[in-house]
Design a protein around this nucleic acid. Structure first.
Lengths: 158, 158
DNA sequence: CGATATTCGTTGCACATGCAACGTTTTTCT
DNA sequence: AGAAAAACGTTGCATGTGCAACGAATATCG
């Protein structure tokens, strides 16, 4: 379907089609999924993706430090910090000092934050099911391959 | 392996693990691949990802407009425009007005740009093979699933 | 116990990004 | 043909981002 029109002059370069290049394809697929979701988050809840990720993690493990979230959801600590500040300003979470280790900031969902997530999470779960349905029986295998990429290239290779 | 510690208070929210959420996992996998490559591009050639994409497309179809590239490599036209300007400043491509339609800008690799791509493309191809080897026999199926996501969610669904 | 190193979270800064607006050129419509 | 609409590429502006530096707090070591 996506044939390559080789219209230009001949450069003598090896054949290369970025549309068949896996890193590009993965980025594109991820971007398509994220943008679909992102639009919903923004339109209905006024949330950015970093904000959503922070809330999502707190929904699972309520009570976490910035560092916890940084390692869990693959975001730089400065990104987490700023997202948390915006969420605090909106009253969705609260920051408290941790008395046992006063370097840590303890993040907790407020009642309002919990209420928002009660509306938001079903949406996310529905989207996950929609993808699973779309991919059909091979979904499990696909997911395993995604994991293989994460495991295989996350740590530095030789 | 990645069990979820449910340490915090109970919020009554549905169970949700962002680590199992496919949009997040796809983004993470794509990010890992891109960052590995991106580091190589930057360290050895001083290229950003947008710049690399523009060059990659021109390596395939030498001679293209900004709009062509925008639709081919999934980048906004402003992003393409700025990347092209930087590449022109470095002498890797040249911009010429198109005499047939003077709204268009005709982008072409310079000799220097071609030489750079002659060094760069084998690196990209090697990386692609490395991923294919890593994923093994199921790679074809995996790639088809990636395509299914691109096709299925790219156009707006109901 | 005291000095040094490390961890945590925030912030300043330079830079990349998306979006809208713009001037120019071409296409479409009456 | 002439007017209105659309397409193309660039740029201004507000905002998001990564990185390094920082102050505060804790851990480690002699």
């Amino acid at each position: 379907m996506s044939e390559i029109k080789r219209t230009g002059r001949d450069t003598g370069l090896p054949d290369f089609d970025i549309g068949q290049f896996l890193p590009y394809r993965m980025t594109l697929a991820a971007q398509i999924l994220s943008e679909t979701l992102s639009r919903a988050y923004r339109d209905r809840f006024g949330l950015s993706i970093p904000e959503w990720r922070v809330l999502a993690h707190l929904a699972t493990v309520d009570g976490a430090s910035v560092r916890d979230i940084e390692s869990r959801v693959a975001m730089e600590k400065s990104k987490v910090s700023r997202a948390a500040s915006r969420l605090e300003a909106r009253g969705l979470l609260s920051k408290q000092g941790n008395p046992e280790d006063r370097r840590l900031v303890h993040l907790t969902l407020t009642a309002e934050g919990i209420a928002l997530m009660r509306d938001l999470l079903p949406l996310a779960e529905a989207f996950q099911r929609r993808i699973e349905d779309h991919l059909g029986a091979e979904f499990q295998a696909f997911d395993a391959q995604v994991q293989a990429i994460i495991d295989g290239f996350g740590a530095k290779g030789p």
